[in-house]
Structure formats: C-alpha cells, structure tokens
Design a binder for these strands. Structure first.
Lengths: 235, 235
DNA sequence: AATTTTAACTTGTACGTACAAGCTGGAAAT
DNA sequence: ATTTCCAGCTTGTACGTACAAGTTAAAATT
C-alpha cells in the first residue's frame, strides 16, 4: 500500500480518470497545483504524469496543461473496426463459456510459461456480434492468481481489460501475436454463420500485463468480410 | 543542430548502438560516467536514457546498469515469423518496382492525410521470400519530403525502417492497421505461387514516424500457411 | 476601438544534492 | 575452505532551485 510517492499520485489520478471524474478533454490540475495539494515537488508530480502519458491516459501541451485523452487508444488492443465507434449499440458479446477453472488447452499457439502452467487456468469463450451478425469467436486463458470475483462478477463494459484495469489496477503493457489467414472449419463456420472453407482471420495473442506473472492468452477467429480487425498503437 | 542537451546525448548513444559500436547485450557507461564525460547532471543523462528505453534500444537493470537490447523488438513492426531469427540466410527481398515518384494509389485502404496528398508520392513494391518461397507481397507509399538518396540508394539490411532510422534518424512511433482474411485474386495468387482462392492475409498499414508530415502507407498480402505473421510490442 | 505590451500562468529543460535500494566482489570472520 | 559481511559500485526516488519557452488574458498604448 505504500510504494513510491509518484505511484500514489499516479494511481490517484488514474482512478479519477477511470471513474469519469475527469472526462475526455478535461484539463488536469496544473503541476504546481498538484505539488501543493500533495505537498511534493514538481519532479515527483512530473514523474507521475509521465506514467499516465505512457499508459495513454493523458497528453501534455506545452504552455497549456495536461489533458485527458479522448479514448484510451492504448497498446494495440485489437478492435473490430467500428467496434469502439459504435459502442454499445450495435455491439453485443455473448459468453459461450463463462469464466471458470479449466485445463490449459493445447489450442494455445503461443507457448505458455512454465510458472503459469503450474497455476490453475481460468478460461472463457465469447462470441462477439456487430449489428446482430457474429464476427469474432474468442477463447481466452489466464493463470489463476486469485483475483477475487473475477470469475463470478460481470465485466466492466463487457471488457475484460477494463475490468483488470479498474478493479485490479492491472494494465496491458505489451503483446505478442501471430496472424494467419485460414479456411473456416466446421465449428468456426457454424458459430460465425459462414460457409465451411470461407477465409477467416486467426489471431493468436499473448498479452503481457503489469503483473509479471499474469499473461493472457487468446485465440481469435474473425470474419473480416464486413468488419476488418483494427489495431492502433503509439509510442 | 542545437536542441536540448538530453537530445544530443540521446542521439550520440543511439548512433553508437545503430552503428554497432555497442552491440547486443553490451552495458552502456554508467550514468555517473556519462555525467562526467559530457559535463552534465544525472537528471539530464537519465532523461536521455529514458528516451532510448521508449524507443526500445536499451533496458535498465536496478543496481547493474543499462543494457543494449537484443533485437530492437520495437513497436509492432510486422515480421514474417522466423524472419528476424533466420536473418539474411533464408530470407530474400526482391523489388518488383523500385522506389520512384508515382501517383497516390486508390489501393490504399487507410485514408491519406490531405497534407500528404499535396506532396508527390514515392512508391515501391517488393516481394519477400523465405527459403525460396514467396510469402509476402508488399506495396508501400509515402510522401516525398526530399530525403536525398532515398530513391536511388540501397536500403540498410534490406529494411526500409532501418534506412530511415540510420540515415535520417526518423523513428516509427506508432501505427494503425486493418487486418482481413481474403481469397487470393489472380495477381496475388500468381506472385505468391498459390492457387487462386487460397486464403491470404491482407494487412493495411499506416506507420506514423517522428516526422509529423511523414506517414508510410502499406498494403501487404501474405501467405501465412507456413509462416504466420508475427507482431510484438511493449510499453 | 484596435492594437501592442506586459504579466501571470502553463509545461520544458537543467542544475545540484541526498539518500534508498539492488548488485558484486573482496575482506573479514567463522 | 566456507560463510558472512561490508564497501563500493550501480540505478531509483525525492528533494529544491532556476530559468526558458509557449499560452492567454488583462492592461497599457496607440
């Protein structure tokens, strides 16, 4: 609960942004104001703000101030094109298998580290719809590091990553992926309501998080005919 | 040529790394050594090193030092899996069309900014081979911002990005991409030596660089059967 | 009234200092 | 000979100060 001072400021501001107390485009208190509020020096405040910049929460403008970023266009999280634009309305997510302890699957393409394989495995399967059409089948695995309530509770805005960030303050800090174009097999074809043999995008993912023993492994199958998969990142 | 001090140290070290004077795994001079070499304070040295970390050139280890990173596994540059591992030997790149001034193509999926469309367009087309097999057709477009010699000269290690970095000190700072699985048309099929209708991965890319008026647009078609496309990035 | 200047804000760079915390190898104690 | 300890290195955090540079709005000038 202690840790370095700059982390406390960082968490304090991050929490406010996440809770919507500062919203898109808002200006944060100036560095000097934060200094006196927290009785710390500007060096420390600037360190905290720099962390927020790295995580994509804010941006600074010389001579003006620090501003909360529009959407947190973070680190190459995959989006169905038109997913984030049409938030909520035309998008639906259905659990085929709710989060539960299951076996580590050999379906996972990217090698799971030994440390993680020793732990139990949480798995869930989701089907994502845009305008009523199924466009992405998603299988996710992660080691069970006892995040209380992760299994039973609902996700924040149907997003697993937002849940990790808001409830557990765990951020995605990187990823590794493999991309393949494949012909849909019978199971995929049935779920995505396409013909067998139709080309689908197969994405194998390993997300690294700020918790060094928590990586998230995903296998995605996407019908990219109408909705290509989008991917944005920045330094 | 002046600019802030930390930028000078940053460029100095970056250049040394790029030229191979420091190589993979090497330890950089300690922060205090750099301080006395350049007659600056540790604050400034640390700022320069932090930039190098962001760009993926080095990593720091508490109590030990700053180390040059193995491969610059930077910002989600796409790689044919097994491309960077088997450097040079099994990999070949052939220009189908050498860099030259051409028209802005309407093949580009991601919108080209107006400012760029006013400039002339440099275009080149390459076919990439692994173990003698063609695996990726690559079309690239960028605005002509008068990078002398870019058209005529050879690329550094057959890499366009390395050329930009080493010769012009321009770095990739982000990207936007769209991914689609498609059936190969006749032209793609012929070039990649596959049957028409075979599933291929179509990647549309926009790379943002440290030069705000230089974005690079690419359309890639990949046969991912044997060699999936890999993609790594980190905060 | 319109323009210019100034003053008061913002963030950016750079200085210098001090101590904490992680690592390593040689000296000291066992 | 082995272990323990410590001194001297490394990076990490935090303090405080000063001035440069970009922005803005009020004040002074025209």
């Amino acid at each position: 609960m202690t840790g370095p001072k700059y982390r406390q400021i960082h968490n304090y501001l991050k929490e406010k942004i996440q809770k919507g107390l500062y919203s898109e485009g808002d200006i944060l208190p100036s560095e000097n104001e934060l200094c006196s509020s927290f009785s710390i020096t500007r060096t420390t405040v600037r360190k905290a703000l720099e962390e927020l910049i790295k995580e994509g929460f804010i941006e600074k403008k010389h001579g003006k101030g620090s501003f909360v970023k529009e959407r947190r266009q973070s680190l190459g999280l995959l989006n169905v094109k038109g997913f984030s634009e049409a938030v909520g309305q035309n998008v639906k997510t259905v659990f085929l298998k709710k989060p539960a302890i299951r076996e580590w699957s050999n379906q996972i393409q990217i090698p799971v580290s030994l440390m993680e394989k020793q732990k139990a495995c949480i798995h869930f399967e989701r089907l994502r719809f845009v305008k009523g059409e199924p466009v992405m089948l998603e299988n996710n695995w992660l080691p069970d590091i006892k995040l209380g309530g992760l299994i039973s509770n609902e996700f924040v805005e149907a997003s697993f990553f937002k849940t990790l960030s808001r409830n557990y303050r765990i951020e995605i800090i990187g990823s590794e992926s493999e991309l393949r174009a494949e012909n849909a097999g019978s199971k995929i074809a049935e779920l995505l309501k396409i013909k067998e043999g139709y080309p689908v995008l197969h994405i194998s993912l390993k997300f690294k998080t700020s918790n060094p023993v928590l990586n998230i492994y995903s296998e995605l199958y996407c019908n990219t005919q109408k909705y290509p998969i989008g991917n944005i990142y920045h330094l």
